[in-house]
Amino acid sequence: MSVERVDRATHQRGRGTTLGNIQALRGVAALIVVCAHVSGPDGFETRVFGSSWTWRSNLPANTGVDLFFVISGLIMVVTTWRVFDEPGSARRFLYRRITRIYPLYWIVNTAILLLFVLSPASVSFDDGNQTDILGSYLLLPHEGRLPVLVAWSLVYEMYFYLLFTLALTLGRRRFGWVMGAWTGLTLVLFLALGHSSNPYLSLVSSPLSLEFVLGVGIGYAVLRGWLFRPRLVLVVGIVSAVGVLALLAASGWAEFPSDLFRVLGPGLAAALLVYGAVGVEVSHGGTFPRPMQRLGDCSYSLYLIHVPALTLLAAVLAPMLPSGPLVHALTLVATPIFVVVGAYLCYRILERPLQEFFRRSLPGRRPARVASAPRRRGVPAPRDSRLRRWLARS
């Protein structure tokens, strides 16, 4: 059975993308972001205990988003490379991305808005800017916070998906030009505008987009079989990530000096991690422990619900818990476990059924048994059997 046929058959059985190490890194990224909202200046720990032991971990924990962005770039290339020039590929890609992001987000967004209407004091997303309700549902660029605090990163994700849809529409031969033009335009706008007060200009001029491009480059390298010493790269990535996190913790900064700093620091460290992790899986069959991969399965639910979950938990615990270092320490250990369990339930009850429903409704969905499509000119071919097997699951 050909790679293409295996891929289509596994997709029709609902398995989707099965990149073990990438799933594990997704879970790690989401859990890191949870830590940011436990330790933040107005986060869970401060609300419950009135002080924060972990405040220095707040800024380092925000780097989980940079890891997500790099992973997104990789996944988009790997999951579309066979069908890049097929009719309707852009439409199917955008449908999958929209139905992946919006339904669960709309449920969480609605729940937070309803809670705000019923009990404004229990929700804190008002930072002086008027909330654009329609814009929050559409994930449009915005000023200030959205009701779902982490949704600012989903605005970037949707921007990237639109750019990638354009690349699919223009075809594989122009893919490099689209990515190159996007990179160049982003840098020019960043140098010309800096940080713009206009939310749309701020989005298109942000260097954070370059983290997606790093992921795209890694994805293309994997498809070409350019896997240079992945174990060494993974070790270097881990050391680099630890070094960046330590630097941020020691700095005492309340925020990153600039978005460009994020790309050159956390972004590059994330790229090394992703390249090394994928390379180890493809070249040597090495994968992270299965519990980490399962955490990655529910990473989107964890990412969306952890802030409202922490907010509600703080409201319940603040008047109940006695003060004292032992209680403080035990609460810090138990809280992420509580949030992960809640995210897993959300994944099983809401996210996965929604994914299955929209996958079955995919326009132009093909039957499981189809003839193998010939390899098109310009489509990179896997260099070895292990890589072909890995791509068959992607």
Rank of each mutant, 00 (worst) to 15 (best):
T335I: 02
R393S: 15
G267K: 05
L203Y: 05
A270W: 03
R290I: 05
L94Y: 06
P291T: 01
R96Q: 12
H284S: 12
V155L: 11
I112D: 12
L354S: 10
P367G: 10
G64N: 05
A111Q: 08
L234R: 02
G73P: 09
L210V: 07
S51I: 12
S89D: 08
S51T: 15
G64L: 02
V188L: 14
V282E: 10
L208T: 08
A192S: 15
M1G: 14
A90S: 01
A277N: 14
N198R: 09
L210Y: 07
L114R: 10
V188E: 12
P141A: 06
A371V: 13
L210W: 06
F49I: 08
R386H: 15
V38A: 02
A318V: 06
V316A: 02
A36T: 09
T17S: 14
A392N: 06
G324E: 05
W226R: 13
F190A: 14
F44H: 06
G364H: 08
W177V: 08
L168T: 01
L114N: 09
F175Q: 00
L354R: 05
M320Q: 14
R97C: 02
L140N: 03
S209H: 06
Q293Y: 04
P322E: 09
T331F: 11
P207N: 07
A381S: 12
F256W: 12
M158R: 07
H284Y: 15
Q23M: 09
G215T: 06
V242E: 13
G135C: 13
S89H: 11
P380K: 10
L149C: 07
I107M: 15
G276R: 01
R366S: 15
R173F: 06
G237K: 04
V38I: 15
C35F: 13
M292A: 15
A181I: 09
Q355C: 11
L113N: 08
M292P: 14
G243L: 13
W55S: 11
A61P: 09
Y303E: 00
G144F: 10
L74I: 10
V316S: 01
R172D: 01
S323V: 14
L210T: 03
L208V: 13
N21P: 04
F228I: 15
L245Q: 13
I101P: 03
G286Y: 10
L31S: 02
P230C: 04
V370F: 05
